[in-house]
């Protein structure tokens, strides 16, 4: 991931100088959140950020997007992608999408490990378990690939909804925003919606046009930053793969 970031940074610096435009360094996750807020008009939501590289529950307070819960090992999208490879599900258009479609035809619920630690989750145990068991169960005709997709989704999404609800109860929040690539999964949105209904809260979600990584979300976050007076000096512009959501001072919100 380092090389593409370096390349894009060079392009951005070049364009900024060619056209005399201000340059802004943007945190990737903040891009997702600001895009989600713009599209859904959510005011002050508890954010569930779920993708191939990240799983975080975030809430805003005192000028930071603070991480209340996150995965303590691998991201949920990573768990889904690697499971897809175990039972040879196609990458076209994406493993997550194909798991979602197969899961609709799943009938039997296969019990899998369920690991929630407060507002944190862990997926590595589920992945190890299913890597070990999946092909054995399939060849013994104990379940179908559809059943496994269904059971995996039901398990990991229940964990995500649970930690989101816990963060809401802890923060006294009545809004949820789902962002990140896994966020366009309709089953996850449906489950989150039911949870919100049960506690009189409101769900905000977007479809794949805005959930999946895109340039516009970076532009939106950059615009918010610029509006509040931030600019990145050319000599201070850099890239990093370890930029945590809570490191950014949010100057554009009260």
């Amino acid at each position: 991931m380092g090389a593409p970031l370096v390349t894009v940074a060079i392009v951005a610096r070049t364009v900024a100088q060619l056209w005399g435009k201000p340059l802004l360094g943007v945190n990737h996750c903040i891009g997702h959140i600001e895009m989600g807020r713009l599209i859904t008009k959510a005011n002050n939501p508890t954010v569930l950020y779920v993708s191939g590289g990240n799983t975080q529950v975030i809430a805003y307070s005192q000028r930071r997007y603070r991480i209340f819960g996150e995965t303590i090992d691998i991201a949920v999208g990573n768990c889904l992608d690697r499971f897809a490879r175990v039972i040879k599900i196609s990458n076209d258009p994406s493993p997550g999408y194909n798991i979602e479609q197969l899961a609709k035809r799943g009938k039997r619920y296969v019990e899998l490990p369920y690991t929630v630690k407060g507002m944190d989750v862990s997926f590595s145990g589920i992945l190890s378990y299913i890597e070990e068991a999946a092909n054995k169960m399939l060849s013994a005709d104990q379940c179908t690939p559809e059943d496994l997709c269904f059971s995996l989704q039901e398990t990991v999404f229940a964990m995500l909804v649970e930690i989101t609800e816990r963060a809401m109860a802890h923060c006294g929040s009545q809004e949820v925003l789902i962002v990140g690539g896994v966020g366009c999964n309709l089953r996850l949105q449906e489950m989150m919606g039911v949870m919100c209904q049960e506690r009189g809260a409101k769900l905000f979600a977007t479809n794949e046009r805005f959930c999946i990584d895109n340039g516009a979300m970076i532009a939106q976050a950059g615009w918010e930053m610029f509006r509040s007076g931030q600019v990145t000096q050319l000599e201070d512009s850099w890239i990093t793969q370890r930029y945590r959501t809570d490191e950014v001072e949010v100057t554009w919100r009260d």
């Binding site: 990737h28 303590i72 991201a75 793969q241 930029y243």
Partner: peptide, 10 residues
């Protein structure tokens, strides 16, 4: 440290 190692992209 396990937490820190996580990449912030994707």
């Amino acid at each position: 440290l396990r937490g820190r190692k996580r990449s912030m992209v994707g």
